[in-house]
Amino acid sequence: MKADIELVTLVKDGDTDAFSELVRRHQQALLRTIVRMVRDLDLAEDVTQEAFIKAYQKIHLFEGRASFKSWLFQIAVNTAKNKLRSSKRETVEIDKVNVAVSAQAEKGLVHQDIQEALIEEVERLPDKQRTALKLRIYEDLSFKEIAQIMDCPYDTAKANYRHGLMKIRSVFKENDLMRSLIQNYDDFVVPQGAGHSEVKT
């Protein structure tokens, strides 16, 4: 089986079958990542297709400094951000910040509510923090991979991730919702995936 970089060389020479193989290899992981970013399958399909088309058009720009996968994901993540921006899904009105969490707090929380509140808080994070957080938690990517995809230094990727989590904690604490979140967490078994250490507290 040829390595990605060998396939890229063939694509640069005009071999579309080699590109077809790259699509087969990466389409599933890419679509999964983008679905979790945009939370809409139709939009994720559009973004994934567009990312592959852009990668094909600009294949001569790929110099192999990072992996092809990281490069492709970088294109896809940027495309997703642009799509979200253009569809105004990211619009956050200042006076609405924390409204979701506060409303949930008032009516009492069940599992679904607390998760919805958590999702909304994630969506309110600044772009870079949200991306780092989703790539790390949803996709279980290393900070090195995240840095490559976000085109930033390793420490910046990590800092964005940390700040995102800290902001979420701060909002939940302000609204006295940490206990519900912990309760919700205790009600299911957390898988011990790579890079995520579970400690008995």
């Binding site: 679509l31 999964r32 679905v35 979790r36 939370r39 399958l41 607390i114 998760q115 958590l118 999702i119 994630v122 957080l133 989703k134 938690i137 949803y138 989590l165 979420i168 904690r169 939940f172 604490k173 940490m178 979140l181 912990i182 919700n184 967490y185 205790d186 299911f188 957390v190 898988p191 995936g193 995520h196 579970e198 400690v199 507290t201």
Partner: peptide, 18 residues
């Protein structure tokens, strides 16, 4: 707190149908 935030988010991520 951080473990529960992360754990809940993992669950949310897995709940999105792909």
């Amino acid at each position: 707190d951080y473990q529960s935030i992360r754990g809940n988010l993992e669950k949310v991520g897995k709940a999105i149908e792909v």
